[in-house]
Amino acid sequence: MRRLTPKELEIGMIIAEPVKTPLGQLLAEKDTEVTRQLINRMKLYRVEYAMVEGTDPDTPEAKTHAAASKTHSQKVAASNEFKDFQLKYFQSIDELKKVFNAAYKDSADIDTTELLASVSDLFTCRKTIIELFDMLFNMRILTDPLYSHCLNVGLISRMIGRWLKLGREELNLLTLAGLLHDIGKIKIPDEVLNKPGKLTDSEFALIQRHPIFGYDILKKQPLDPRIKKAALMHHERCDGSGYPSKLTDKFIDDYAMIVGIADVYDAMTAARSYRAPLCPFQVLSNFEEDGYQKYKTKYILTFLKHIASAYQNNRVILSDGHACNIVMLNQHSLSRPMVQLDDGSIIDLSTRKDLFIKSVL
């Protein structure tokens, strides 16, 4: 392990011990990857150092998780494909900001044609699901969290729509629903929306009003009603546990439900002030625990199966630190596939509740 100050940390390094503020607030768990956001938070909370994996970046150390993950992250960020994606992503962010502000401040009509053109280009230039997620992950540290989240949800929603074999017009409407789902957050002060610590009860109540704010902004727009309903209902859940109206399944619009799944997935795989980003299989596990009650079966099963399948044969790290390859999915427990260790032995994670996939390489 190495002890490094925030200035010495590099994006892609792996945290060897939990990083906490002087008051004990968790900023990053063990085995998480260093991001620009983490470095900035360490500076903000006056955290003097972090322990990271490795003794020398040039030594292999048996190809540990740190070395493998760092190499992958840096490889993606340094690729020509990422540079091209980054430029198009920033252009889409700029367009999204312009749309949000014009619709909110000036009540101007939303130019859906221009918005769709930039996002569709981002989607079609990626060859695989994992490649798209790699690009989105590397963009997290570079952009405004509200607009990057909306852009990501638009892209993920479009992906789900393709898995559901929707037609082109429906795909475009679903993409717009994802892009505009959080427009209501533009009415929430930045100091509340991006607050690093715990929200007060009144602040949390304000955050929970953003679907209503969003619907109020969009209701007079010349948009398909499903786009407006997605803004209003993307936090509603089939069992009535959602907000703002505690609707149950038969009252929730289908587009809102798809956007809600994309919204949760992107939020869980992003870093938060109180936790590190979750690995895709940890998110799948969370969905499996209660998702079948909260989301429409057709949509949640389609999403989970395709996400899990995207990582077939991928290399991962288990909670005990062992590296392995995914060799077979368990259809009844998608977050717990069969894996093969480097010594050739096979572990069925569906029967080993003491182990889980900690990260994807």
Rank of each mutant, 00 (worst) to 15 (best):
L4T: 01
T5M: 05
K7F: 09
K7T: 13
E8F: 05
L9V: 15
E10Q: 15
I14L: 02
L23R: 03
A28T: 09
D31M: 11
R36S: 04
A50F: 10
A50G: 07
T55V: 14
K63F: 15
T71G: 02
T71D: 06
A78C: 08
A78I: 02
K83Y: 05
L87T: 13
Q91V: 05
D94C: 05
E95H: 00
E95S: 07
L96F: 15
A103T: 03
D106N: 12
T113M: 09
S120E: 13
L122S: 08
L122W: 01
T124N: 08
C125K: 14
I130V: 15
L132M: 10
L136T: 13
N138H: 14
L142N: 15
S148F: 10
I156N: 02
S157C: 12
R162G: 11
W163K: 10
N172V: 12
G178R: 12
K185P: 01
I186A: 05
D190E: 05
E191I: 03
E191P: 00
P196E: 07
L199T: 02
D201L: 14
P211H: 02
I212F: 04
L223Y: 05
A231Q: 08
A231W: 06
C238K: 10
G242C: 03
S245Y: 14
K246H: 07
A262M: 00
D263W: 14
D266N: 15
T269R: 05
A271D: 14
A271H: 04
Y274E: 02
A276C: 09
L278N: 09
Q282Y: 01
Q282S: 14
S285N: 13
F287G: 09
T297P: 02
K298F: 04
K298H: 06
Y299P: 02
H306C: 07
A310E: 02
A310L: 01
N314G: 07
S319F: 10
A323Q: 01
C324E: 05
I326S: 08
M328F: 04
Q331W: 00
S333K: 11
R336W: 07
M338H: 15
D343Y: 00
D348A: 10
